[in-house]
Nucleic acid binder design. Structure first.
Length: 744
DNA sequence: TTTGACGACATTTTT
DNA sequence: TGTCGTCAAA
């Protein structure tokens, strides 16, 4: 117990209470940065060390793999042993584990494939085609969204059928039901099915559910505010024997309602679990007083919340800096020079993050960072396994593994190009559908028909190759198999040829990715293990190794912390997102505000907020953007507001003298290049400046008719320095740069 | 059947 | 902005 007390040493009273309450139902409402992960870890540790439970009797569920891994490694470090038999994982990975064992109970084989969104969409499209349901006004994405929602909310096919009144609803019900049948036929399931299938196993098979209920003496749930009704039901089943459950969450950080995690679900805790007790963790250990003050002040605008008040004993810290810019480019320039500043004062780049509402907004920063040679990483952009080339390789492995994997075959049947086009595929599809056989078998039938020439030879070829791969699948190891398939199929050749083309940068990446994939393969004992990993684990874990600036969405920043946080794109309409307000009204707005709260509380030392006046993209060009209302909702005394420094300081380009002042040893390759190219850039800038002055010389006058590339013709209302307010004939009134104007 | 050009279109957040 | 789908030509 000594050891234990040592570990408890720096916990506060509430945290210790939370750790020591082991039996019954406990909901811990833990504010951001209040050490909830520590509490969870210590709880597991406490169960183990006080011999309350064996490792495999503890079920710890999280929503992200990151969180699951953190729990595992930190507990392993404390106990000094690595435990591989335990049940720590995401809802989905644990469900997959259960489902693999009992798949036959829901009509799947144990080597079922977990499909992703692309496959889901493809499947829905093909269902609509064969059912003659038009995708004109409701597209496949819409149906997918509905189906996902049914699964999140634990609504069965039957219920959907019963409720369907108008034709659209009946179509939806039909698609849903066929979709489910198709998944079973193809031996696949989607993410939602992992949970749903478990539920039907629990429901149907008493023996299985009893065994699991007996096994899990203690259940721990992280990020409980993210729970959806299906997952809640899932927990209820597993809880109901020992009845020990502890959920940790923060209603103010509920930002996944579109995944069925509505904030009201947290209330089910008191409904579904017996004698619930609720504890609060309110002391924040992460951030400065000012940051906490801002975050609390902001979140107080929400009506729909538990009244939890976070506070901090840390130092007061510096004010939040607010900046406005005209263009995203300027935003990127300003932030990058701020980062350079931080860097020279020895801040590790790992402690700096730029958070945005929309993943796509990394672009201007990427460009800038590449330009000046600041290393950065994008977290949660395109997932590794979502890349085209990786999915292609996986499809090859899948079809070798299982001939009846129609989705995989369809994906690679003409990649690389074999002259098996849409038309041929359609014919084969028709055959398979009519005969109710797999695509693979359909191909064989097609070969016996009289039609087609070249395509047939190729199909025949492919089929015999697939047969061949399948024969050796158990004879050689999976790495050799993968190499063999890549060679044999001509896919490697395709990549290599592509990389030789003029624009080789991207294809070189692809080759790299495939190689990385093969490397990853080595870490798994067999193909199945790897395929499971790939479909359930989005990120690769070694992303934190190097010193880099992190760029990510506010959503994916949840659970992370950084010394300095830049929050960009705080423009009304973008954040809070117009769409979410339109879709969900007040509750949508509150969710956006919670997102702002999450974003603010990521910072330990200092927050920088910025907004951009002019359109971020041409297509978002509706209007002149104004600063987010959330900026107004922050307490004035904690803010330091700057006008667009761009206009005070007309030198936009990177300042070379700053560069030379910096320690030369620190200069990265990118910067070196920059210095080398400095003259060139400088010339360009000079030319650019000349352009501007040329325009200024020929200066426009108020009332002039002008032309703008993006917005068309218009009349100048007002000229201000280097910008002008224009009344455009077709696109309304906008502020634009003079340099982009032409005489009519 | 493939390729290229063109225009339409959509753009939140993810296990 | 870039991706996707459609269309016509090769």
């Amino acid at each position: 117990m000594n050891n234990l007390d040592k570990n408890f040493g720096d916990l506060n009273k509430q945290q210790i209470d939370a750790v020591k309450k082991t039996s019954g139902s406990l909901l811990i409402l833990a504010g951001a940065g209040s050490g909830k992960t520590r509490v969870l870890i210590l709880k597991i540790y406490y169960f183990l060390i006080s011999k309350l439970a064996l490792p495999n009797q503890i079920l710890a569920v999280t929503f992200t793999n990151k969180a699951a891994n953190e729990l595992k490694t930190r507990v392993s470090n404390m106990t000094g042993k690595i435990i591989d038999s335990w049940w720590v994982g995401t809802f989905h990975s644990i469900s997959a584990r259960i489902l693999r064992k009992h798949s036959e109970l829901v009509g799947l084989k144990n080597n079922f494939v977990i499909i992703d969104k692309d496959d889901q969409i493809k499947l829905i499209k093909s269902i609509c085609e064969s059912e003659k349901i038009s995708l004109e006004d409701k597209n496949a994405k819409y149906y997918l969204k509905c189906i996902d929602r049914f699964k999140n909310d634990y609504i069965s096919e039957e219920e959907v059928f019963e409720k369907a009144k108008i034709k659209d609803e009946r179509d939806l019900a039909k698609i849903f039901s066929i979709y489910q049948n198709e998944l079973i036929r193809l031996n696949c399931c989607d993410f939602g099915d992992l949970i749903i299938h478990c539920l039907s196993i629990f429901k149907k098979n008493n023996k299985v559910v009893k065994q699991l209920q007996n096994q899990f003496k203690y259940i721990l749930v992280d990020e409980y505010q993210d729970i959806n009704p299906s997952q809640q039901e899932w927990l209820k089943y597993l809880y109901s024997h020992h009845k020990n459950i502890c959920c940790v969450g923060d209603d103010d950080q509920s930002i996944y309602s579109w995944r069925g995690a509505e904030i009201k679900n947290i209330l089910n805790f008191e409904k579904d679990f017996e004698n619930p007790s609720i504890m609060f963790l309110e002391q924040n250990y992460r951030s400065t007083k000012r940051i906490i003050n801002c975050a609390s002040h902001l979140i107080n605008f929400n009506k729909n919340r538990y009244n939890k008040k976070i506070w901090s004993q840390n130092s007061e810290g510096s004010k939040i800096e607010i900046r406005g810019f005209w263009e995203t480019k300027e935003e990127a320039i300003s932030i990058s020079s701020k980062i350079e500043e931080l860097k020279t004062s020895n801040t590790p780049l790992n402690e700096i993050a730029i958070l945005m509402r929309v993943a796509a907004h990394t672009r201007s920063f990427e460009e800038r960072f590449l330009n000046i040679g600041l290393p950065y990483r994008i977290i949660g952009g395109i997932k590794f396994y979502e890349r085209k080339e990786i999915k292609d390789v996986i499809a090859y492995l899948r079809i070798a593994n299982n001939h009846n994997d129609d989705l995989a075959l369809e994906r690679i049947i003409n990649v690389p190009k074999r002259g098996i086009g849409k038309l041929t595929l359609k014919k084969i599809n028709l055959i398979s559908r009519n005969k109710k056989i797999s695509l693979f078998e359909g191909c064989k039938i097609y070969l016996q028909s009289d039609e087609g020439g070249k395509a047939k030879i190729e199909i025949n070829n492919l089929i015999s190759k697939i047969h061949k791969w399948n024969k050796v699948i158990n004879k050689i190891d999976h790495i050799d198999l993968c190499e063999l398939i890549l060679e044999d199929s001509g896919y490697m050749e395709l990549l290599i040829n592509e990389s030789k083309l003029k624009d080789h940068i991207e294809s070189y990446d692809r080759l790299d990715n495939v190689n990385e994939f093969m490397n990853g393969l080595k870490e798994f004992e067999n193909l199945e293990g790897f395929l499971e990993h790939v479909s359930l684990v989005a990120e690769n874990d070694n992303i934190y190794k190097n010193e880099k600036i992190s760029l990510m969405t506010m959503h994916s920043a949840k659970g992370l912390e950084f010394k300095y946080v830049f929050l960009i794109g705080w423009e009304e309409g973008l954040f809070p997102s117009k769409r979410s307000i339109e879709e969900k009204g007040q509750s949508g707005l509150e969710e956006e505000r919670r997102l702002a709260y999450v974003a603010l509380t990521r910072a330990k030392e200092k927050v920088f907020i910025s907004f951009v006046n002019q359109n971020r993209y041409s297509y978002a060009s509706h209007d002149f953007n104004s600063p987010s209302r959330f900026i107004n909702e922050l307490p004035k005394e904690d803010l330091e507001i700057f006008n667009s420094e761009i206009f005070e300081n007309d030198e936009y380009s990177f300042n070379i003298s700053q560069l030379e002042e910096a320690n030369t040893a620190e200069i990265s390759p990118g910067k070196k290049r920059l210095i080398e190219n400095y003259n060139k850039i400088n010339e360009q800038n000079l030319a650019h400046d000349r352009d501007i002055s040329a325009i200024n010389q020929s200066s426009f006058n108020e009332g002039d008719r002008i032309f703008h590339k993006k917005f068309g013709y218009g009349r100048i209302l007002e000229i201000e320095n280097i910008t002008a307010l224009i009344n455009f004939d077709k696109s309304g009134t906008k502020m634009v740069y003079l340099k982009y104007l032409f005489r009519e």
